[in-house]
C-alpha cells in the first residue's frame, strides 16, 4: 500500500487519518455525554473537559489535514458492483460527515471561548478566543454542538452499516480498501 491514494484503493495516509478520526469522533462523543453528567465532586470533573477540548482541537487539525489530503489525492474509483444510488448516497454521507464535523469543532470552540477565555491544548499551549460575546453565544453554540454530534453519530452508523453491507453481503472490496487489506479483485480492477 502506497502513502497516496490510487484509483484502486486508499493510501496509508488516508487510512490512518480515517481510523484515527473514527476513534476520535466516537471517543469524543462518549466522553462528552459522560462528562456533562458528572457530579461536582467527581475526580474527573475538571480533567474530562480538559481532555475533551484538547482531543477536539486535535480532531479539528486532523479534519483540515484530511480535507487537504483528499483534495491532493485521487479518490479511488467506485467498484464495479456499486450501484448508482449507493454512489450518490455515500457521497452525500461523506460530505455531511465532513461538514458536520467542521461545524461541531467550531461550535465547541465557540462555547469555551464565549467570554474571551482561550482553550488549553494538553496544557502545552493556549488557543486564543477569537470570536466572543455574540448574543447567547455559549448556549447557541452548545445546542449546535450537541445536536450535530448526535447527528454525526447517526450518520457514522449509517456509514458503517453501508461498509458492513458491502463487506458481508456484497463481499466486495469497499471496506477492505479502507482497512489496508489485500484486495480480492487484484490489481487489474
Amino acid at each position: 500500500m502506497s502513502l497516496r491514494n490510487t484509483a484502486q484503493r486508499y493510501g496509508l495516509i488516508s487510512v490512518v487519518l480515517h481510523w484515527l478520526m473514527a476513534l476520535g469522533v466516537i471517543g469524543l462523543f462518549s466522553l462528552g455525554l459522560w462528562m456533562t453528567d458528572l457530579g461536582y465532586y467527581s475526580p474527573y470533573y475538571t480533567s474530562a473537559p480538559f481532555w475533551h477540548k484538547s482531543i477536539g482541537l486535535v480532531l479539528a487539525v486532523l479534519l483540515v489535514l484530511r480535507l487537504v489530503w483528499r483534495l491532493a489525492n485521487p479518490k479511488p474509483d467506485p467498484l464495479a458492483g456499486h450501484r448508482g444510488w449507493e454512489i450518490s448516497l455515500s457521497a452525500l454521507v461523506h460530505l455531511l460527515l465532513y461538514l458536520l464535523l467542521g461545524i461541531i469543532v467550531l461550535s465547541g470552540y465557540l462555547i469555551s471561548t464565549a467570554k474571551g477565555q482561550g482553550i488549553s491544548l494538553f496544557g502545552w499551549l493556549e488557543v486564543p478566543a477569537l470570536v466572543t460575546n455574540l448574543p447567547d453565544q455559549a448556549d447557541r453554540a452548545g445546542a449546535v454542538h450537541y445536536w450535530l454530534a448526535v447527528s454525526v453519530i447517526g450518520l457514522a452508523a449509517l456509514h458503517a452499516l453501508g461498509a458492513l453491507k458491502h463487506h458481508l453481503l456484497d463481499r466486495d472490496d469497499t471496506l477492505r480498501r479502507m482497512l489496508g487489506m489485500r484486495l480480492k479483485q487484484g490489481k487489474e480492477s
Binding site: 462555547i111 467570554k115 455559549a138 448556549d139
Partner: peptide, 16 residues
C-alpha cells in the same frame, strides 16, 4: 436571569 455572569463562559452556561 440569563444575564448571570461569573466571568467564565462554561460555568455561566451551566448556571443558566
Amino acid at each position: 436571569t440569563d444575564s448571570v455572569d461569573s466571568n467564565h463562559a462554561e460555568r455561566d452556561k451551566h448556571l443558566r
